[in-house]
């Protein structure tokens, strides 16, 4: 028997290596090493010609405390928070309705949430800008209806940035919520009703706790990306409501200060790690973030 086990172990080594080897190498080269580069770069200096030189400095981290930057971090976190709250507030009842509908078009209702995302996200965000713009349909309508005498400036503030973020990230809230709500055991709800609980009590004491996992994974999938979606803040916020992603993007493109951009990215990584840790503490399943 012992011999058998040893034989099986030996014969499994080659297939295990051939199957898991490629992904290991890939992740090492294109995920782990690049992030190490970013970490190292965040401690590097710039020479007079804006070239990155490997000379240790904490200056990039000191610059992160610049009040102008701190203001943007706070504004970005506020945008992320508002986006998440709005996505839960709209997404929860919406997911509940489509997950528990008796309609035979249930699958279609679900697909209709995903279909918009097959059109390029930039152009859809631009669609919002056209819609809300000075010459856009909304202003045309308001002026024709006599509700406005000249075009109203809807665009380029924190509100429109949040609108764009909610728009881009809404499905990432709905999908985990839908999964969690669909898994709800009908008999538990009936038991709650049989035992005399009112609908509201059943909702708060049974339904919400059982679907909390969906709320958690949805919130993670909405909050974190919204810190980085610089193009939404560009197109709909017009520079008046930047997110942390805008700061990073500028350092790597026009600003040409990669070490500072790297240090800013480290902040974003730390926020992500912190939120993921909290998510795991609350019992969140990592795999449900990716399906």
């Amino acid at each position: 028997m012992a011999k058998m086990t040893k034989h099986r172990f030996r014969s499994n080594t080659l297939p295990a290596v051939t199957m898991v080897g490629p992904v290991t190498l890939w992740l090492a080269f294109f995920v782990a090493i690049p992030l190490l580069y970013v970490l190292v770069m965040s401690f590097c200096s710039l020479d007079s010609g804006y070239n990155v030189v490997f000379q240790f400095t904490l200056a990039n981290y000191q610059r992160l405390l610049d009040p102008n930057y701190v203001q943007i971090y706070l504004s970005s976190i506020l945008v992320a928070f508002l986006t998440t709250v709005i996505c839960v507030a709209i997404g929860y009842p919406f997911s509940f309705l489509i997950a528990r509908t008796q309609s035979k078009h249930k699958a279609l209702l679900y697909m209709l949430v995903i279909i918009p995302f097959w059109t390029n996200s930039l152009i859809r965000i631009y669609g919002w800008r056209s819609f809300l713009g000075a010459n856009g349909p909304l202003n045309q309508f308001l002026m024709n209806a006599g509700l406005a005498s000249r075009p109203i400036q809807f665009l380029f503030n924190r509100g429109t940035t949040v609108l764009g973020m909610v728009y881009c990230l809404f499905p990432f809230m709905v999908l985990p919520l839908y999964t969690a709500i669909e898994k709800l055991d009908q008999s538990l709800l009936e038991a709650s009703a049989d035992l005399g609980a009112k609908k509201a009590a059943t909702f708060v004491k049974v339904i919400i706790p059982l679907t909390m996992s969906g709320i958690f994974s949805g919130s993670i999938m909405v909050f974190i990306p919204s810190l980085g979606y610089f193009f939404v803040a560009d197109i709909l916020g017009g520079g008046n409501s930047d997110v942390i992603g805008n700061l990073i993007e500028r350092q790597f493109q026009s600003g040409n200060n990669w070490p500072l951009g790297a240090a800013l990215s480290i902040i974003l990584i730390l926020i992500t790690l912190l939120l993921v840790k909290i998510y795991q503490k609350l019992g969140g399943d990592m795999d449900s973030l990716g399906v």
């Binding site: 898991v20 992740l27 995920v31 690049p34 992030l35 970013v38 974003l268 992500t272 973030l289 990716g290």
Partner: peptide, 30 residues
């Protein structure tokens, strides 16, 4: 298969999913 370091691979797998895309973008650029 069970093997050492499986957790590490799992951890690396979650990074591109949860990290803001811009961080993945600039790390690859670097």
């Amino acid at each position: 298969y069970k093997f050492k370091g499986k957790n590490v691979i799992d951890g690396l797998l979650y990074i591109p999913v949860v990290i803001p895309e811009i961080v993945l973008g600039i790390s690859l650029l670097t």
